[in-house]
Amino acid sequence: MPLLATRQLTKRFGGLAAVNQVDLTVEPGAIVGLIGPNGAGKTTCFNLLSGFLRPTTGSITFDGEDITGWRPHRITARGLVRTFQHTTLFHDMTALENVLLGLHLSSRLGIGTVLLSRRVYPPDEVARAREVLELTGLGAHADQPARSLPHGHQRVLGIAMALAARPRLLLLDEPVTGMNLDESGRVMSLVKEIRDRGTTILLVEHNMKAVMGTCEHIVVLNFGQKLAEGTPAEVSTSRDVIQAYLGAGIAHA
């Protein structure tokens, strides 16, 4: 059974179908790439999957359960966690506090508990947050405010926060955008390591080298519709895909 499956997923904004009847399946344990030219509907697709937008029609099934139209926090609680395209962090908090928020779901909250505890944050949660920071290579920056981290570290921190929420499926929206070769290489090997630890990955990325090198299965969107899918080799030689990226003239030439 696939971990994630959409059926005829459609989102219309007025007359424009940003996502149009897309069937998408993600098998457990896979690293799947979602690519396509600008405006192809990739981010809209992510917003639908994570509950930030409601589909106009179609359904989303996660781990056998219909999650269509659920609110974002409920979807996260089921184990489908996303990151954001732009560097979205709690900038005024330390890296550790950012990750602590990722642990929100497993936290014991209650006014009583909070008032009676002597610590600011529960020590076991702090320990787990530090573990996640170590795993992502940010261990040394735990107490630095997020805003003072270099861009590459900020992006990784975004992934660390999502990881703390213990996802079964992690949606990464352009994880290596704006990074140099060295940084993006490190992030992509982190992505592989996350998968090897048991989290399925669906990622959107413009950096083709990163996508082709990491993903085992690729889905190509164009004008909101699924154009092609297959292994990196199949997709990169597909006539339709080349046409979509480079224009009709070149493909026919």
Binding site: F52, V81, F84, F90, M93, G102, M161
Partner: peptide, 15 residues
């Protein structure tokens, strides 16, 4: 604080 700073991000973390 997380809600005040960036509520979509807080939501995405399950808040």
């Amino acid at each position: 604080r997380s809600i005040g700073m960036a509520d979509p991000l807080a939501q995405s973390l399950g808040v």
